[in-house]
Every structure is written in structure tokens, then in C-alpha cells.
């Protein structure tokens, strides 16, 4: 991997993604610096979640080039970006973690096993070591005392905090948050945001966050990108975007969500 002369950990160049006849991302260009905290905002269907899902290799794309930490999503010698082998995609996936809107904890495993399972099975970590690390992560999200509970025994906010610990247990360099608080009751949003806020202080971790929590986005991001119709209409420092948006669509959108 050749990263020394490239400050960007993520680079989309001219990526086009279609679902059937619907073009979700159209010649999309976007790059993220190592350690940067970027928030993606915009109306639903504007392509922001798709960006995360492509990065997590949950969705293929049709055209263009995408690299992560110097590794291209195209397989060298492969037929195209969408035909990379599972082996190749698994190498990329090792650098990326994702927190989902609906938490997606494994219901048949205790909280501790949810966090320990992937480091043991995928990274080959010794179970004792993985458990020690998992307990530290669960302490970080304030749930070490729930380690023997099953997900159904936890509130939504607690489940999402476990999901964050689970993603962090894989030591990702890039962590993706796909509307992490949208499925939560309003009084549970705060506890999840405070965990994400703590993570935002980790210097080396690159974070991409899709959210509708505008105040939070303004507080934690280095950069805010406003998406509309598969493109970034406007991007900049949070104070610029929220303070004096230049683009008409951005102004309309912010007026509608901020009320």
C-alpha cells in the first residue's frame, strides 16, 4: 500500500452507481483525509447512505474508481469494479467498520459475544485478549455491566452503543455511521451521540456520519457535505454550511429541517 504521498484515505473518482434505471450517484467525486470527521446531510434518497454502503462493500458500483487506504476497489487484473473477488473485498473490509440505523446486533449472542466474536473469528485474536479489549470498549460506551445480557434485554440506545463497541473492536481505520440515531426514541438519542462525540476525539479514526441531527453535525464535524440528487451540492466547515450556506438547495433543506 502506497499511502505516503496520498493524504486521502478515501477517494471516489467519477463513481457512478445505478439501481436499475435509477442513477443514485452520478460521476461522484469525493475524498476524505485521514482522521477527518465528515458529516453527510441532505434529503432522503440523495445518495448519502449509498456512499457509506459502497464503502462498506454492501453495494457494487458501475463506473469509476474508488480507493481506500491506497487499495483500489477494482481488483488488479479483475474485470471491473463490480466483479472484484470476495478475497479482495475482504481485504478492503478489514479497514472499515459500520454502525447501522437499526443496530443489527446478533440476537442469539450476549453483548460480550457480539463484541468478541469477530475479533476472534476474523482477526484470529486470542479469546482472552479479545474479551479484555471488549470489556474496555463496553466501559467506554458505559455498558460493561450488561455484558451477559442479550440484545432484546437492552433499550435501543444501549443496543446502538453495543453496536459501536462491536464495530470498534475490529480496529477500523474508517468508521461509518448510517443514521445511527434515526431509529431511537428521542430521549435515547443523547446517550448515543455522546459516545460518537467521544470517538470523534480519536485522532487517527476517520469518521463518516450520515445524520439528521444538525446541531450534533455542526459540533463534531470537520466538514459537512450537503447531498442532493447524487451529488455534493455544497461542502465546507460546519460554520460555513450552517452559518451562511451559499447554495439555494442547501438553504431550503436547512430551513426545512431546522424549522
Amino acid at each position: 500500500m502506497n499511502e505516503t504521498n496520498d493524504p486521502h484515505i478515501i477517494e471516489f473518482s467519477d463513481v457512478t452507481k445505478r439501481f436499475g434505471i435509477l442513477t443514485v450517484l452520478d460521476n461522484f467525486n469525493f475524498s476524505v483525509a485521514k482522521g477527518e470527521k465528515v458529516t453527510l446531510i441532505g434529503p432522503s434518497g440523495s445518495g448519502k447512505s449509498t456512499v457509506l454502503r459502497i464503502l462498506m462493500t454492501l453495494e457494487p458500483f458501475q463506473e469509476g474508481k474508488l480507493t481506500l487506504a491506497g487499495t483500489s476497489y477494482h481488483e488488479p487484473g479483475g474485470k471491473g469494479p463490480f466483479q472484484a473477488s470476495e478475497t479482495h473485498l475482504r481485504q478492503i473490509r478489514n479497514h472499515v467498520g459500520m454502525v447501522f440505523q437499526s443496530f443489527n446486533l446478533f440476537p442469539h449472542m450476549t453483548v460480550l459475544r457480539n463484541v468478541v466474536e469477530a475479533p476472534v473469528r476474523v482477526l484470529g485474536m486470542a479469546r482472552a485478549e479479545a474479551e479484555a479489549r471488549a470489556i474496555k470498549l463496553l466501559q467506554m460506551v458505559g455498558l460493561a455491566d450488561k455484558r451477559d445480557h442479550y440484545p432484546v434485554q437492552l433499550s435501543g440506545g444501549q443496543q446502538q452503543r453495543v453496536a459501536i463497541a462491536r464495530a470498534m473492536a475490529m480496529r477500523p481505520r474508517v468508521l461509518l455511521f448510517d443514521e445511527p440515531t434515526s431509529a431511537l426514541d428521542p430521549q435515547l438519542v443523547g446517550e448515543v451521540l455522546s459516545v460518537i462525540r467521544d470517538l470523534a476525539h480519536e485522532h487517527d479514526l476517520t469518521m463518516l456520519l450520515v445524520t439528521h441531527e444538525m446541531r450534533f453535525a455542526r459540533e463534531v464535524s470537520d466538514r459537512v457535505c450537503f447531498f442532493d440528487k447524487g451529488r455534493i451540492c455544497e461542502q465546507g466547515a460546519p460554520d460555513e454550511i450552517f452559518g451562511q450556506p451559499k447554495n439555494e438547495r442547501t438553504r431550503e433543506f436547512l430551513a426545512s429541517v431546522l424549522g
Binding site: M56, N104, M170
Partner: peptide, 13 residues
Amino acid sequence: QQLEAARALNFNR
């Protein structure tokens, strides 16, 4: 969603 979570954690098939 369960399968996607498994994929995001890089479990193999």
C-alpha cells in the same frame, strides 16, 4: 440486515 452486519464485521461466508 443481519447478513450485512456480518459482512461489515468481515465474517466470511
